[in-house]
């Protein structure tokens, strides 16, 4: 396991609005996450989980504080460098997947590769391997809307995996899945996605899956109120 912190968040603060409308979404949050671990972020609705995730993954600029990924202060990067950072280092699985309905399943998976300037055929070929990993090889040519919720989740997962990112970020991965499917996805993440070279952040409400966490970071009202060990420890 690499000893250097995968993520190092420092006094992260984000507010929205100004004057009387000013509300703090995240206040002075500092924590570290490491390669080879699955860190859960839990907390009530509106406690700032998604906001925090966005600042860590280079999507939302903090008002105060800094984020270092593998030692690089990402919010000091120029916009194009930041885009490259997201493309090469981060794999996202959005809460409602954001798959492209007009593209086939395999084309959806190939998108990050295409954005990496690979040519179309190469990208599709490589995407096929990842579709196979998530067990959807036979659905390659279908539009994503023809797939079940769990299958769509796996497509989104394959799309996040193709870049072989160091950081995998899931926002509510199991919220819209039944318990069994949710557990199957989590097993897959634990057995096939997690590695010594990778750090996984998962935001969730779903206490059915807490057992998969290495650590659980609890948030309330924009602040960290404590850490729990996951049950697997």
């Amino acid at each position: 396991m690499r000893s250097e912190a995968a993520i190092s968040a420092n006094e992260l603060t984000k507010w929205f609005g100004e004057g009387t409308l000013k509300t703090f979404a995240v206040r002075e949050v500092s924590f570290q996450a490491y390669f080879g671990e699955i860190l859960f972020i839990v907390g009530p609705s509106g406690s700032g989980k998604t906001t925090l995730l966005s600042m860590i993954s280079g999507v939302l600029r903090p008002n105060v504080g800094s984020v270092a990924i593998e030692g690089v202060d990402i919010w000091q990067l120029a916009p194009d460098q930041l885009a490259d950072f997201r493309l090469n280092k981060v794999g996202f699985v959005f809460q409602d997947y954001h798959l492209f309905p007009r593209l086939t399943t395999i084309e959806n998976v190939a998108i990050p590769l295409i954005l990496r300037k690979k040519n179309w055929e190469e990208s599709i070929e490589e995407a096929a391997r990842y579709l196979e990993i998530v067990g959807l090889k036979n659905k390659a040519e279908l539009p994503p809307m023809k797939l079940s919720g769990g299958e769509q989740q796996r497509v989104a997962l394959a799309r996040a995996l193709v870049s072989q990112p160091d950081l995998m970020i899931f926002d509510e991965p199991t919220a819209s899945l039944d318990g069994d499917t949710g557990r199957r996805i989590m097993n897959f993440i634990k057995n096939n996605v997690l590695s010594d070279q990778r750090c996984i952040l998962i935001v969730t409400h779903d206490n059915r899956i807490f057992e998969y966490a290495d650590r659980i970071m609890k948030m309330e009202d924009g602040r960290i109120i404590g850490f729990d060990n996951g049950r697997s420890h």
Binding site: A83, D84, R86, L87, N88, I111, L115
Partner: peptide, 16 residues
């Protein structure tokens, strides 16, 4: 728009 937003999040650059 949402799809373009997703592309942006994934790492598409402005000029792309």
């Amino acid at each position: 728009l949402e799809k373009f937003g997703a592309l942006k999040a994934i790492g598409a650059k402005g000029n792309e």
